[in-house]
Amino acid sequence: MYDDTGAGPLAVYAHGGFTSQDVERRMNLFDWAPVLRVGRRLVCYDARAHGRSTGRPFEADYTYVSLADDLLSLLDHLDAPEPVAAIGSSMGCATCLHAAIRETDRFSRLVLLLPPTAWASRERYARANRAAADTIERQGAEIWLAARGDAHRPAAVADVPAFPPTPPEPVLPSVLRGLARSDLPPPTTLAALRCPTLILTWADDPGHPVSTAAALADCLPRAELHIAHTRAEVQAWGLRIAQFVAVR
């Protein structure tokens, strides 16, 4: 399911794992109004099994590669006449990168929000996801969520409310295991990606380490990186993204 707003060249947004378009609006996390004001058509969609989109309990459906298939299928459905600007947060960031390396000519610009753990730091995240999936299957999602307690919150978003995962409990272990099987494309592959790229992240977030964002900025030939330390800086991302995607 997706929301289609505005008119002009197409920009598409892929949200982070376990959230949805509705949840991100309620979190007041990102402001997309500036993107519409610069004359872009913005399509925001719910990834499979998230929010209003359905999904199956098959972990292969939730790897970054499969999610990139979904993004490319959405672009087919939208029938965009020219390359699009792709914006992705966390899981959505990885989705956009995998789609862009597969069909580079379909993308004019990339905006990568909160790049997730990758490469050397990925295995620790993968182990935690597999353990979480096992816990949910044995004891239920409530036990897993309670065991997580008050997870560390970066200072830039410490006041943002937390929401439970949007994938339904019967599918949630498959989502966790699919993400555990995933990683960003290798740096040597990303080095061939020539489209301009804006990377935005915040500090002090183990799940979205600045080290991943910095490594991406180093290996992508036309990338710029900005790191937020305050809520005000995160709230300014919408305007920064709009200025970036408005360039033709």
Rank of each mutant, 00 (worst) to 15 (best):
I136G: 04
S108G: 07
G140S: 12
L67Y: 03
A85K: 03
N129D: 12
A132Y: 01
Y45T: 00
G88L: 09
D76E: 08
L145F: 04
L72D: 03
R153V: 00
D134A: 13
L97E: 14
L110W: 08
R102P: 08
Y125K: 07
P154W: 15
L110G: 07
W144P: 06
A49G: 12
F58S: 01
R52D: 14
P57A: 00
A132I: 08
D76A: 04
L114E: 06
R56T: 06
Y45F: 14
P57Q: 01
R109I: 07
D79N: 10
H152I: 00
A86S: 05
L110A: 02
D79E: 11
G140D: 07
A128E: 12
R106H: 07
F107A: 03
L67A: 03
L78C: 09
G51I: 05
D105V: 06
M91C: 08
A68D: 12
H50C: 05
D150P: 13
D79A: 13
H50T: 07
E103T: 02
N129I: 00
T95Q: 05
P115A: 00
G51R: 11
L75P: 07
V111F: 02
A49Q: 08
A133E: 04
L42D: 14
I143C: 08
I101V: 15
P57L: 01
R127Y: 11
P83G: 07
A156R: 13
R138C: 01
R102T: 05
A156S: 13
L97N: 12
L71G: 06
P57F: 01
R153S: 10
G55P: 15
E103H: 03
A86I: 05
Q139T: 05
V84K: 08
L113C: 04
R153W: 07
R102Y: 02
